[in-house]
Computed example of a mutant assay.
Amino acid sequence: IRSASPSYSLLSKFSKKIHEALSSEHKDELSQAFNQITASFEQTDEFSGFFNRFSEALKGAVKGFVHSLAVDFSAYDPNNYAKSLRIYAKEGDNIRGFEEFGTGEQQVLLMAFVKAYMEVFTGENFVLIIEEPEAHLHPLAQRWLKEYVVDMCSCGIQVIISTHSTEFIDAEYLDGLVRVHKEGGVTKAIQLSAQQLCDFCIGSGVPENCVSPENIVDFYSTKLFSDQLKGMFAETIILVEGATEYFALPVYLKRSGYSLAEHGTEIVNCRGKDAIPLYWRLFKAYGYNCYAIFDCDRNASKTRDVFNGIFCEEEWDTETENCIVRADYAYFGKDFESYLRIAIDDYTSMEQTISEKYHISSKPGKAKAIAQHIEEIPHFIKDIADKLLNIEQLGQN
């Protein structure tokens, strides 16, 4: 709810009283004079061309944004009529001043204005800096605005955005992504070229014939989803291979005293063990703390191949009843669920009870429900929480 200031309310009341005091004859005279001045401006190609382009630039706006535009004169300056121009928007028959718009709408108007200016008055360059364009916009509007910004860039406008929204991060433009963070109390910025990201991947085990500066951005552009990009706003990232761990582990960690949000930690579902290394390389290249949790699936050879160049284990323990916790990764000899069924008394019967009582049939759903209701917290959860705290402390020093 936007509350008007007392001065604005008083000015509005004054304007209304003056408007009511005008006779119909005076209103007609003023209207005719206004139309004559407007017509004079519209005969100027630059003026009419600009506002036509300005209006066109806003036609694709999402619902709730500006619908039509017009010009008005807030004061009359006979020496320079252009100084008296005021842009306002209409919603039906209602006229809205610029100050009445929400932050998101104001940004859309500003960008449309710059875009139209560039198209009409060619030869000028702009660097448009936008702070948190996602402010007061719902996710769909943010997505549309991101597309609009990309279109603006194609017109030759350089745009710099500071954001806390994944909607404005596009893997197709990784080389333009800059991570700004504090390290040991000092603000640092990390920006990687395609060559630098490629070099990091090769240095961490990717064969040279499988990656190049020409294909690495395209590769990541088809691998990153919005929920995975949330890791870009964390300090520490937990990489897991599936939905079961994604939903259950935060519950166990919270109950053990480790809140992900409190410690700036994000959990990322990599959608498969084979994908953990590619996300690990991306996030580590940008300086994030990473902790991986995965299953060995009783296959030491494949696990060794998957994590070659990242995690070096002399002998991968593939016993079903084992969970190994290291400084920056943890793994289960077989898998997460099999370990819990052995490590926790009555876990199997609880799965059955949860399924019958809450009508939950999915594996992730049952794992999360048990994590919420079980009295016993697996010991490895506390071990992992301790490792995460160690990583956090090392990052602060």
Rank of each mutant, 00 (worst) to 15 (best):
A367R: 01
T303F: 11
Y81S: 09
A234Y: 11
Y286H: 12
K182W: 05
F336V: 04
E91T: 12
E245I: 07
R96E: 10
N308E: 14
Q196I: 02
E46Y: 09
D175Q: 13
A57H: 08
D345T: 13
S55G: 09
A343Y: 02
D317L: 03
A327V: 04
E315L: 11
N215R: 13
Y329V: 05
L10M: 07
I18Q: 12
D305Y: 09
I370R: 05
I157A: 02
L278N: 01
K273W: 00
W144G: 00
P133W: 00
V66Q: 10
F311L: 03
E20Q: 14
A275F: 10
E134H: 06
I267R: 11
Q107S: 08
I342Y: 10
S193N: 06
Q32Y: 13
K188V: 15
G257V: 03
C296I: 01
Y220Q: 08
V180C: 05
Q196R: 07
K387F: 03
K223Y: 13
L58A: 08
G333N: 02
A33T: 07
S84R: 06
K188A: 09
T44C: 12
K230Q: 09
A61K: 00
F380R: 04
R2I: 04
D151Y: 05
S23E: 04
V217H: 02
V217C: 03
T348E: 12
L389A: 12
K188M: 07
N52S: 11
D227C: 01
I130E: 07
H164L: 12
Q191D: 03
I237A: 03
D346A: 13
A369K: 15
A33P: 04
Q196P: 05
I354V: 15
S338N: 15
A261T: 07
K223E: 15
A234Q: 01
A135I: 13
S154H: 12
K146I: 00
R326K: 14
R304H: 10
K223V: 03
M118F: 07
I202K: 06
A285D: 10
V186Y: 07
Y279Q: 06
S55I: 10
A135T: 15
K17W: 02
N397R: 10
C290E: 08
P139F: 00
E337A: 14
I391V: 14
V306D: 11
S55R: 10
Y347K: 06
E147C: 05
V180M: 09
Y258E: 04
T222I: 04
C290N: 08
Y88M: 09
A171W: 00
V206P: 04
A343W: 04
C198A: 01
E167C: 08
G333V: 01
D295Q: 12
F219C: 00
V211R: 02
Y329E: 09
L137F: 12
W316F: 13
I324H: 04
I354M: 03
P250E: 01
Y252V: 00
V150A: 07
D297N: 12
S12G: 13
A116F: 06
P378L: 06
